[in-house]
Amino acid sequence: MTVTETRPTAAGGSPPPNPAQRLTALPAKIAKSPLLARVLFPVFLFLVWELSLIAVEEIWPFAVDVLPTPSEVGAFMWDEFITDTLARKNLYETFFISLRRLMSGFAIAMVLGTAMGLAMGLSRATNAFCHDWTMAILAMPALAWALFNSIIFGFDDRGPILTVILAGIPFVIVNVREGVRNTPRELFDMARSFQVPQSKVIRHVLVPSLMPFMFAAARYCFSIGWKGLVIAEVFGGQDGAGWTIKFWYDAHRAHGVVGYAAFFVIFAILFERLVFEPISRRAFRWRPQLQTEVVEEAFGEHHEHYGEEETARR
């Protein structure tokens, strides 16, 4: 708004720089560019890591061999990458197992959660019935589900999958319910007065206006489900990503733990970049404004999801 107004005047006001000036200005421009800063961040991390290793060796009474060095971690990650591993299953198998569990839990949570969210958005009684329990499940730590399910189900797929469902479903319910509440009321009224059948109303009015909320729901459900899944696999799994990082932890290989943690981060970011961003770009192409909103929502995690809608509704 104000920014877009000021920018052209600022650009027009300064005289066009001649090539020589531009050349001398180049280093300063590079130094100021956010991209450089972004590249500098890993460098900075690396330096802090190395320096703290030196500091620890000099000052602190740590057993130094416990601390992983960057080269160790790099070597470990490379070995894992080329599937040369000491763990029972290699990197790809491990993540595939976890992904399978995550996907089954995610699918069930999305279906059940959408159904419940719709019911809660459409009927006041259902909302009153389920609201408190949804909030309770939302606030429950995944650790509790993980330990509980590991005790109930032992070491198989059902415990982790149930953990994913329980961790993810409240986000779906809350988002879908908000979506239903935010549907354009006048369109419903019009549909009713023109006696459009219910099924058609749902398909042409409810679903399109629900899409952004569904998408946000999927995103939360996925990321929270993933966080819950790895904890569940630590306590009640015999394989999978969570189990494998615990394997390195139990073996007391710090470089293994750090390396695997890096894989976790890479996995999450890859998924975000390769799956959710393209889908969001495709699904909301017709609605440029909304797309930016949804992308920001991914950052404002849990933003309007902890009973926030109650204050908003007031």
Binding site: I231, I245, A261, V265, A268
Partner: peptide, 9 residues
């Protein structure tokens, strides 16, 4: 985006 578990471990 990273699970809290990794920092904990």
């Amino acid at each position: 985006s990273a699970p809290g578990l990794i920092w904990v471990l």
